[in-house]
């Protein structure tokens, strides 16, 4: 499923941007609990620090620390409209490869579950570079004095997850998102089913990255006789990161790793400029 560099943008338009635009409201309703490492990173920032949230989605990370000022951006206008209401922050619609920020002007940046949507190696590396370029460079001779970026991507190695991907699996995958049609009157049996789905949505927020209820929903929708009318399946493109791949991209993009790790099916890294 590898995509040529030239075709990357139009591929992502169809298999990432357009999907999020359509599922924005439903997607947002399932995403409200911040992941612990992201929360810790944001709370560590001093009062008055200036940050960027690249690919802010519905803005759930804008709610974590009200003592800093974050400019969030996302490719999806519909998600940005939802993210707009988090004070004192602000949001704009922008592409993560063409960010509208002056270089080296931010104390911190986050980009959570975003870079894995870029469909070629060069575009993923460029996305990392664009995040690093936002950061204040370190003062001469003072290590650790520069701005820091936290980047989070979905891991290939997640054999204990429902999806079961692991080392050696295909890294470029299409992941379904099923939007359940709302109904006024639901027979008892289906009601139960819907409730279960809701619980899955919560479990998802308890750390299971960009996965979650989709799998089982997909199974439901693949069986035509049980498929509730009006359900719609969207496929999103993901690149699943191998161990060490994110750190490699960061170093190639001119960054240094401050800290990195694995948490709940995701690789994450905190980086700064050299």
């Amino acid at each position: 499923m590898a995509v040529s560099e030239a075709a990357g943008l139009s591929y992502e338009e169809e298999h990432v941007h357009e999907v999020y635009e359509q599922i924005a409201s439903h997607f947002s309703s399932t995403r409200y609990k911040p992941w612990p490492i992201v929360e810790r990173f944001l709370k560590e920032q001093p009062n008055g620090a200036i940050g960027a949230d690249v690919g802010c989605g519905n803005g759930k990370y804008l709610a974590v620390n009200k003592e800093v000022f974050i400019v969030g951006s996302d490719r999806s206008t519909n998600l940005v409209k939802i993210a707009q209401h988090h004070k004192p922050h602000d949001v704009v619609v922008a592409d993560n490869l063409s960010l509208p920020h002056p270089p080296h002007s931010f104390d911190f940046a986050i980009s959570i579950a975003v870079v894995h949507h870029l469909s070629t190696p060069a575009r993923r590396m460029e996305a990392v570079k664009c995040i690093l370029d936002l950061l204040r460079p370190p003062q001469q001779g003072v290590s650790g004095s520069g701005g820091k970026a936290l980047i989070y991507v979905w891991a290939l190695e997640q054999k204990s997850s429902r999806r079961g991907w692991d080392e050696g699996s295909e890294q470029d995958v299409m992941v379904p998102w099923v939007m359940t049609a709302k109904k006024e009157k639901v027979p008892k049996k289906k009601k139960k089913q819907q409730k279960r789905r809701g619980e899955e949505g919560l479990a998802q927020e308890n750390g299971e990255a960009e996965k979650g209820s989709e799998d089982q929903k997909e199974e439901n929708s693949e069986a035509p006789e049980t498929k509730p009318e009006g359900d719609k399946t969207f496929l999103r493109y993901y690149h699943l990161y191998r161990k060490g791949e994110l750190e490699g991209d960061i170093e190639q993009a001119g960054g240094v790793i401050v800290e990195s790790g694995y948490e709940k099916d995701n690789w994450w890294a905190i980086a700064s400029l050299k």
Partner: peptide
């Protein structure tokens, strides 16, 4: 959009960012 945000925005076109006239 707050005026404070304009303090952290410039043109999204890469060749403009290095030119002082793109800010604010």
């Amino acid at each position: 959009m707050k005026l404070l945000t304009l303090n952290f925005l410039t043109c999204a076109i890469k060749t403009c960012k290095t030119n002082a006239s793109s800010f604010p």
